[in-house]
């Protein structure tokens, strides 16, 4: 039967605490959860705090927990659910108000990662850099990230164990992978991966991949390859010795 109304339970509160409040919302064809939340804000609760921008699944602002599962509100059709939906703020981050969380920890983590570093030769060259498609297409997948932080939210290391000081989270493994695998980057970030980035805390259970709205294969294409690169240095004496004898390699970060 086609829905005409929806019981929308929205978590209302702040850092001190809160509760689910139920609103009855009229349903239109093609409606997404963000539409319903904005309808409540416009008609019933003008003080409802919600962060959103593009409503096209490209800005990564409207991340929330829909029936307890991390999703973008703008990419979640009402029709996928029954007549009752619960919406709450992301659990891995501190609540500011209602559906808005403080994600600034992520920006602090980002500063700890050494940025893209080309060689001196490339840097001083007046010629445009030439890279073949096969060399950059692997990195292009990581560049699709919209920084919605759903992967950070669902990661049990951050969500259930709150190990934010020990593990930087899947989003930043993707960022490190995009730098490490870049054909023009010359910095070696493997010591960072073993140390401050805390790559060893990830036990590859793939929830980050499951929730990514950009369908980035976070575990298979970023985290596991980075684990293997880390293993080259710290867990493979044979390759480590060969590399030292060869005298090659990147500059340590």
């Amino acid at each position: 039967m086609e829905l005409t109304t929806l019981d929308l339970n929205i978590w209302r509160g702040d850092a001190k605490g809160g509760e689910l409040v139920s609103y009855r919302v009229p349903v239109r064809e093609g409606m997404v959860v963000l539409d319903a939340v904005l309808w409540v804000q416009a008609n019933m609760a003008s003080d409802l705090a919600v962060r959103w921008n593009c409503k096209a699944a490209k800005c990564g602002s409207c991340s929330a927990e829909i029936d307890g599962f991390p999703r973008l509100m703008c990419k979640t059709p009402i029709a996928e659910y029954g007549g009752r939906i619960s919406v709450g703020p992301m659990k891995a981050f501190p609540v500011i108000k209602d559906l808005v969380t403080d994600v600034s920890w992520n920006y602090e983590v980002n500063k700890e990662i050494p940025p893209f570093t080309p060689s001196e030769k490339d840097l001083s060259s007046s010629e445009p850099w030439r890279m073949q498609q096969k060399d950059v297409e692997r990195v292009m997948e990581f560049r699709k990230c919209i920084e919605c932080f759903l992967c950070q939210d669902v990661c049990h290391v951050l969500r259930a164990h709150d190990l934010k000081g020990a593990f930087q989270g899947p989003r930043f493994m993707v960022r490190i992978a995009s730098l490490e695998m870049h054909p023009k980057d010359v910095l070696d970030r493997r010591a960072l991966l073993k140390g401050k980035a805390g790559l060893g805390y990830c036990n590859v259970t793939k929830c980050c991949t499951e929730v990514c709205p950009e369908h980035i294969h976070i575990t298979d294409n970023a985290i596991i390859p980075l684990k293997e690169r880390m293993d080259d240095v710290y867990f493979d004496p044979v390759r480590s010795l060969l590399r030292r004898l060869g005298g090659g390699g990147k500059h340590p970060a």
Partner: peptide
Amino acid sequence: DREVTPGRPRIHNP
């Protein structure tokens, strides 16, 4: 309607 719903939301993996 506007009412307070107690309890935790159920977890639904879409």
